[in-house]
Design a protein around this nucleic acid. Structure first.
Lengths: 183, 183
DNA sequence: TCTTGCTATGCAACTAAGTGCATAGCAAGA
DNA sequence: TCTTGCTATGCACTTAGTTGCATAGCAAGA
């Protein structure tokens, strides 16, 4: 899997410029695939050279021209073929888990700092959950009348919500354990 | 966060060679931080050059010498300092979520292939959960008598178990949605 | 005997990703 | 008027991570 495929999906849902894609990656699709704008511009160039997407130059008077990208026929073929490939096992990178095991090798003061940090981290996940729930109420008020694309987007969002709830429960467990060590 | 810190934690839990570390990353610590043996050897060299770890050459007759690494005083300082740094937001890379949203742009046959793939993926997660539960019964039979290090390891493992259970529930949800599209 | 697999280490080449910086004009508010 | 922030794109450099290959001997089973 590569950034290319996430961009193809995002452009099929809605064509747009590199800048617009970068904002979508910050908001929607970036929940499960992160990318910076530099990366997106670089990959878009390569995809255009390979004929996966086409660009339409839109002059806007004053501002730099905007290049609005759409998925070309060969891009659809690439996506369909990738969808049939086996899902790669995720490359897990969970920093907090390493820190928690590392907490055994620091002093009570270091652990107190870590507890404060976990509490701060918990607040950011609580905020993410609330953002997801607000988005769900706004974008999927009536689940009976959705088309295929929207139904799939909703399923992915439900996954995000379940993930955040799981993380919050686990962080409470972590905090209990950390507090228990120095008591 | 970098591989360095995961290696420091692993070596503090138990000193070992690059080869042994690579196997631990496949099994235990690799649940939340993956690394290949090439990467581990490269980073160990750098850490030794920086004085974070020390190596003891162990000849074994015939086989190449084994270099057994232990954490040095300055490595402990580096770890303690890193534990105080803010936890970086995770860089999420969830391929399956991209594929599910991509399923809106393929045909019924492509979706049928994806369903089969999700079922296969579900089996691997079911197996991971069972591995975790077996490990939990083996390594943490009596939760009352654990020292700090073991208690923290158990907390991290509980996080892994909660994660796998959440994924399995969500995959059932995903399969329902995918099957509902072509019915 | 031959093959497979395990222990044990490593180089070289490549791709992916992140960081820092630069350009450029418009709009809104202090 | 001055600053801040937004739209819009991009280069250059650096770091992190992956892939493929190489060495080398021992042990176990076909």
């Amino acid at each position: 899997m590569a950034l290319e495929h996430a961009i193809l999906v995002s452009l099929l849902e809605q064509p747009g410029s590199g800048y617009e894609l970068a904002r979508r990656f910050e908001r929607s699709i970036g929940r499960f695939w992160t990318a910076t704008h530099q990366q997106i511009y670089r990959v878009l160039k390569r995809m255009e050279a390979d004929g996966w997407v086409t660009a339409e130059e839109i002059g806007q008077g004053g501002r730099p021209d905007k290049r609005c990208y759409s998925v070309a026929a060969s891009g659809r073929v690439v996506l369909a073929s990738w969808l049939r490939d086996p899902v790669q096992p995720e490359a897990v990178r969970h920093e907090l888990a390493v820190k928690i095991r590392g907490a055994a090798f620091t002093d009570a003061d270091g652990r107190a700092t870590l507890i404060a940090e976990v509490e701060r981290y918990r607040v950011t996940h609580e905020a993410t959950l609330q953002r997801y729930l607000t988005g769900e109420r706004r974008d999927f008020p009536d689940t009976a009348t959705l088309d295929a694309g929207r139904r799939l987007q909703h399923t992915v969002l439900r996954g995000g919500i379940a993930y955040e709830r799981m993380v919050l429960d686990w962080l409470d467990d972590v905090l209990d354990t950390l507090r228990g060590l120095d008591r």
